[in-house]
Design a protein around this nucleic acid. Structure first.
Length: 271
DNA sequence: GATGACCTGTGA
DNA sequence: TCACAGGTCATC
């Protein structure tokens, strides 16, 4: 479950290790993995000869900008932008080393068949996307604005502007990538638990004070769990099971489907 | 806005 | 053996 924090770890690895190296070849053996009309021949025409010049992230989407053409000096992004999505079980591999910790719900083994996409460099190294479950994706020049504000820079003002107009459960709104980008199921549950807000509450029913509390909780949760090592290090995580109990007050946690996802929450202090 | 499909490894 | 994990998209 790579959420914002895991994708950010991958972004840092790419920024540290993948920039400035000349691309030699692209391997895209799984056509289904290429989205929005992209094909392997298009990639092979677009990338070799260029270098990655910056590694960005918007929500859960990784973005690698490239230099204009072969021979041009690195530093000026003017070529196509390669977008990588990790889906549920994707991991970035740089020169054979996986970026970040092993994922929950995903095998930590390496199968050649799981290498869905690889960019090889002239120097012999490579950047790869390994994904057992095939729920990730590769795009070229994606529409970045289909994603909302990145959760890492969310402000109370953003929530004041949007939540009063939204009817759906607050948890579904937090996970709507076109509204706020980067939060997945685990982070959303942890944030709402820390905010003491019932995940099924209509977003429009939150008071201004609750919106402020929620925005603060998004920042705090990302910072704390980021330091601990990822989305799976939340206080609520060990109790995400049947018969789980609230780490705050000991109440029996509820397990409900909210926003289409399994949600754990405390009916005593989340209101 | 809610639901099911996609995909496949894992563990009960 | 089979429910379940869940990010995203198509469809209702």
């Amino acid at each position: 479950m790579p959420e914002l924090l895991e994708v950010e770890t991958a972004r840092q690895a790419l920024a540290d290790l993948a920039l400035g190296r000349i691309i030699a070849a692209v391997e895209a053996p799984d056509a289904w993995y290429l989205k929005r009309g992209l094909t392997a021949p298009v990639l092979r025409a677009a990338l070799p000869g260029r270098r990655f010049v910056s590694a960005r992230r918007r929500g859960k989407l990784l973005l690698l900008d490239t230099t204009p053409a072969a021979g041009d000096q690195p530093g000026v992004p003017d070529g196509p932008t390669l977008a990588l999505h990790l889906g549920m079980t994707g991991r970035i591999i740089v020169d054979g080393h996986p970026a970040g910790n092993a994922l929950l719900y995903a095998s930590d083994r390496a199968h050649a068949a799981w290498d869905r996409f690889t960019v090889r460099f002239v120097d012999g190294g490579f950047v790869g996307l390994r994904d057992p479950r095939r729920l990730g994706a590769v795009e070229l020049d994606p529409d970045e604005d289909r994603l909302g504000v990145d959760a890492a820079s969310l402000t109370a003002g953003d929530l004041h502007a949007s939540l009063p107009r939204r009817r759906g459960p607050i948890k579904a709104v937090l996970m709507d990538q076109s509204h706020i980008a980067g939060l997945g199921n685990l982070l959303a549950d942890e944030i709402l638990w820390r905010s003491a807000i019932d995940p099924a509450r209509p977003a429009s029913s939150l008071t201004a004070e609750e919106r402020r509390r929620l925005a603060r909780s998004v920042r705090t949760t990302l910072r704390v769990l980021g330091r601990r090592g990822g989305s799976h290090t939340g206080d609520l995580m060990p109790e995400r099971q049947r018969d789980g109990r609230c780490p705050l007050d000991g109440a029996a946690l509820r397990r409900d489907t909210i926003g289409g996802r399994t949600s754990y929450w405390c009916p005593r202090h989340q209101r």
